[in-house]
């Protein structure tokens, strides 16, 4: 009688132990697979990640003579489109050319001295202030200096 109980007890103990061992080995296998997946995913992520451009933080130089009154000069600044304009009164303005609505590049309207975003009709003044349309914010202003006949943005 007592022997039978002991056997049953041991059997249950063995079953419990086997179940625990199976759960432990399952967890080990899961961890191993996760490590393998990570080891494969990391190089792929690094391979596809955007490369840091060397010109980050660099200044852009534009000869002053290239920009006559009423005209605009588009250029790339820190990986984004930017624009430099010389108003009819001779004032210089440097702005980000990326519309604050959905990221299209605004176009300079020489006759009205305004920027128009052709995507959804956003209208800005020559200083980047929103006149009408969906843009939520004015165009970002960029700092610049003029020295030795060059306009240096940044």
């Amino acid at each position: 009688m007592s022997q039978t109980s002991a056997t049953t007890g041991d059997g249950q103990g063995d079953f419990k132990l086997a179940k625990e061992r199976r759960a432990f080995l399952g967890a080990c296998l899961g961890a191993l697979l996760a490590a393998g997946a990570g080891a494969a995913a990391y190089p792929v992520f690094r391979y596809l990640a955007p490369r840091q451009k060397a010109d980050n933080g660099q200044k852009v130089e534009i000869p002053e003579a290239e920009l006559t009154a009423g005209n605009a000069k588009y250029f790339e600044y820190q990986g984004k489109a930017a624009v430099l304009i010389r108003k009819k009164n001779g004032d210089l303005v440097a702005l980000s050319a990326v519309c604050t609505h959905l990221g299209c590049v605004v176009q300079w309207q020489k006759a009205n001295e305004q920027f128009l975003c052709p995507c959804h009709g956003g209208l800005y003044t020559a200083d980047g202030t929103v006149i009408s349309g969906p843009p939520p914010k004015p165009l970002e202003k960029l700092s610049f200096v003029v020295a030795n006949g060059k306009i240096i943005v940044g």
Binding site: P43, V44, R46, Y47, A49, R51
Partner: peptide
């Protein structure tokens, strides 16, 4: 030049 490009 591409990170892990050699591996791929």
């Amino acid at each position: 030049n591409v990170p892990f490009g050699w591996l791929i």
